[in-house]
């Protein structure tokens, strides 16, 4: 029994070590981020497309295995690749006097990374609307399934920060988990009036607050990277902030009650209320209001990046690892609370 007691703790540390190493060392799949120039007039142009993530492999001199194709409306425009560097592709293109649509998407067919897409890569200025001349049309090459090994998927605007998924999301999960323990303990306290449940609830809220604050901090970092601001007014973010303030209120309430013998019961009442509000604020309200935050808009899960197998192989261990670490911290705090209670009531 005691060996299991230390085993799961070491297990959580090992999982988190795996998550940190894997999370930071796994390469990101390549993706197109930017094109220059972004506006084109009819005529011949040299284009450059910038990429991030895993570098492109050296092109094979024998075969033309890279190809860049622009899409205007439903028609495809031919380009001639002139140079490929690890993180960019240069190509020549001829823009005709008339194009089907002024907004052009870019498709880069690569031998290893499959097809990379950049929507609205170029805008054609001063051109009429009309069909493409036949000599500029391109045929789509046969697509190659990507063969990149273990790598994280490329997502526009998120890019490298996708690794934060392994920190931010499991931290909130852990917070929910331990606050749930606190909720159950507070219900038991109200039912039985026993002090042991109060000690549990206090330990749970204290630990949950740490993870809530960590969740806010990692979320703020992510918001800065993807939305451009440390904090934005969004139902999900408001809910998260209110939740953390609410549970800080729990600690203030306990401190204000001090030595009062009713502290367990009153704190339990407040904690039950706080948990109900947590569910409403973080799980109900954001679903019904417009939110920038992923996984909302009436959808309880994540977006497509959740479906990626390599990300899953690190994300699930992260959820278990952070959850177990959180539970471990909770048991430590509980032991301290028990000792404190014992010393005070001796």
């Amino acid at each position: 029994m005691s060996s299991w007691n230390s085993l799961w703790k070491w297990g959580s540390v090992a999982l988190l070590a795996y998550v940190i190493v894997r999370g930071f060392s796994t390469p990101l799949q390549p993706g197109l981020v930017e094109s220059s120039p972004s506006r084109l007039a009819p005529g011949k142009h040299a284009l450059t497309l910038q990429a991030v993530g895993q570098p492109f492999a050296e092109p094979d001199a024998e075969s033309a295995d890279f190809s860049l194709i622009l899409r205007s409306g439903k028609e495809l425009v031919r380009t001639d690749i002139t140079a490929i560097t690890p993180h960019s592709v240069e190509a020549d293109v001829i823009i005709p006097e008339a194009v089907p649509s002024p907004a052009m998407d870019a498709f880069l067919f690569t031998p290893e990374a499959g097809t990379l897409f950049l929507g609205n890569a170029f805008f054609v200025e001063d051109a009429a609307v009309g069909p493409l001349p036949a000599d500029l049309r391109a045929e789509a090459p046969t697509e190659v399934a990507p063969d990149l090994g273990f790598s994280f998927p490329y997502q526009p605007t998120i890019v490298e920060s996708i690794r934060n998924l392994l920190w931010h999301v499991p931290m909130w999960f852990a917070m929910f988990f331990v606050m749930g323990i606190g909720f159950v303990a507070s219900l038991a306290q109200l039912r039985t009036g026993l002090v042991k449940w109060d000690l549990r609830a206090e330990a749970a809220v204290r630990t949950g607050l740490v993870f809530g604050i960590l969740g806010l901090a990692t979320g703020s970092l992510w918001a800065r990277f993807t939305w451009g601001a440390w904090w934005v007014s969004d139902p999900q973010l408001n809910g998260a902030l209110v939740t953390v303030l609410l549970y800080s209120g729990y600690r203030v309430l306990r401190a204000a009650l001090g030595e009062d013998e009713r502290v367990g019961r009153i704190a339990a009442v407040y904690n039950v209320f706080a948990f109900v509000m947590l569910v409403i604020l973080l799980m109900v309200l954001p679903r019904y209001t417009e939110s920038l935050h992923p996984g909302k808009d009436g959808n309880p899960g994540f977006n497509s990046y959740d479906l990626d197998n390599s990300l899953r192989a690190v994300f699930y261990p992260a959820v278990i690892g952070w959850g177990a670490l959180c539970y471990w911290m909770y048991t430590l705090r509980l032991r301290m609370n028990r000792v404190e209670h014992h010393l005070l009531t001796r």
Binding site: N238, V242, G249, A256, D260
Partner: peptide
């Protein structure tokens, strides 16, 4: 009701506990 259980300084406690809770409603 919760804050009034505290013997001294219940009013200030009401503000501390109440303000964050009122944020969603106020928004």
């Amino acid at each position: 009701a919760v804050a009034s259980q505290v013997q001294a300084g219940g009013g200030a406690l009401g503000a501390v506990l109440g303000l964050p809770l009122l944020l969603p409603q106020l928004i």
